[in-house]
Computed example of a mutant assay.
Amino acid sequence: MTRLPVRADLAGLEPYGAPQLDVPVRLNVNENPYAPSPDVVDDIARSVARAAAGLNRYPDRDFSELRAALADYLAAESGVRLDPALIWAANGSNEVMTQILQAFGGPGRTVVSFAPTYSMYHEYARDTSTRWVQGSRRADHCLDLEEVERILRAERPSVVLLASPNNPTGTSLPVEDQRRVLDLAAGTGPLVDGGPSASLVVVDEAYGEFRRDGVPSALELLADHPHLVVSRTMSKAFGMAGLRLGYMACDRRIIDAVMLVRLPYHLSAVTQAAALAALRHRDELMAQVAGLRAERDGLVDWLRSKGFDALDSDANFVLFGRFDDRDAVFRALLDRGVLIRVVGPDGWLRVSVGTPEETRAFTTALEEITA
């Protein structure tokens, strides 16, 4: 058999991907359980049809209209008004993260995060040939600021990845902790032209819209911290996982660097048209978020009432346990048509927030298994 020159660090690895199984209740990948309304679908269809009439031309590579619409949305959602020039979008927040590491990582550079956290982060590092260093969190899964300081001073990373709310724990990073990390990171980057640089701090707010009342967005810190990046997505709260639209807000110099590594015309005209249509219906789509928050909080209360540990969550999922054999519980739930996720610390499982009917199916099955 002909040998192929695949990169040595990729040999024998399996591609990332949560199970996609045809079961009645899918609560494993933190999707919004509510499909777009007929009005939203009609607007997207009309918008895509208009875009299709011009598909012989390349799309607006700077997607100015979309950036302005995202700025309007963030102002309404977080209370922070940004210049559209400080917003950048790509095909999912995965591509946003990869572009950041293409521009600021690479051979000889280091990216740092703290486990447990999103399992894709180390793959972004691997894919961009950036050295990966993973610190640990406290026993309560919150960030250990002493550990953060130790690792940043020792490793001098070019990028620090912090999810808030964190996946899989659902915990948000307190704003005072974010300020502490940002102040520290202002001088812990790699040497550039003989002097220290800043470590880029990426606060991943993929689940930011689900945060509880009184929990601020990291967007409030952007004006005073030019080395801060806040990443968002339309996959979760907007219920547009199939659209693949992620975006970030940051200093213009960071966007200028990312533009050097982005592929030409990376955001298609169809994607831009569909995203703009969805943003026109932001009030309707965001109205679902309050119901999902209530469903989440009720699920946490139910789990605790049954004797399980369940973490307070600012996301649309709950980490719960503890189980001597979590794989057996996962399989037993799957046998009953309920798919959740084996992820995070040993002994814990993660369940996405679904419709009330899906939540009842999950709680009924879990009671049967653990009776």
Rank of each mutant, 00 (worst) to 15 (best):
G79L: 01
W132T: 07
S158Q: 08
E284F: 12
L285S: 12
A89L: 06
A76G: 07
R131P: 07
L101F: 11
A18S: 03
E368T: 12
R253V: 05
A274C: 10
I255S: 02
I44W: 07
I151R: 12
R61M: 13
D283Y: 10
V192L: 14
V203Y: 04
I151Y: 07
P345H: 09
F63H: 15
G298V: 00
E209R: 11
A206G: 15
L292D: 00
R50M: 14
D251T: 03
M120L: 15
V353Y: 00
R304L: 06
L299T: 00
L263H: 07
E295L: 10
A290D: 11
A154Q: 10
T233K: 05
A361C: 12
V23Q: 00
R341E: 08
S305V: 00
Y124C: 02
A52Q: 13
S78Q: 09
N94Y: 13
A269F: 12
R156V: 04
G337V: 08
G54W: 10
S231W: 03
T233W: 09
Y34A: 01
V6R: 12
H227N: 07
Q178Y: 06
T117F: 13
D43G: 02
L292A: 03
L311T: 02
I369T: 01
T2M: 12
A125R: 01
I340P: 01
L267E: 01
G135R: 09
D43A: 15
S197I: 06
R57K: 12
R57L: 14
V133Y: 04
L311K: 04
A206Q: 13
R326A: 15
P33Q: 04
A237D: 08
V25T: 13
V6S: 11
E31T: 10
R341H: 11
R57I: 07
N91S: 11
D72V: 13
E295G: 00
K306H: 15
G354W: 01
G79H: 05
L285F: 11
R212V: 05
D204F: 08
G194Y: 06
R57H: 14
A241W: 08
V160C: 12
L299G: 00
A237I: 01
I340V: 14
A185M: 11
R131Q: 14
A332T: 01
S37L: 05
A241L: 10
V23W: 00
V112Q: 07
M234F: 04
T233S: 15
A277I: 03
R211E: 05
L333W: 04
L66A: 06
V329E: 01
V111I: 07
Y58P: 10
V175S: 08
D9I: 09
S305R: 14
L228V: 08
Y58S: 12
T355Y: 00
A277C: 06
L10A: 09
Q178V: 07
A294P: 02
L152K: 09
R232H: 15
D283H: 14
L184Q: 13
E357F: 00
S217F: 12
P24V: 01
L228K: 01
L334N: 05
T363I: 05
L292F: 02
G12L: 06
R26L: 01
D346M: 14
A71P: 07
S199H: 12
V6D: 11
S78K: 10
G298M: 03
A71C: 06
H227V: 07
V96L: 10
G12W: 09
I151N: 05
Y118G: 09
L161W: 08
L143K: 11
R150H: 11
Y124R: 07
L86D: 14
A332K: 04
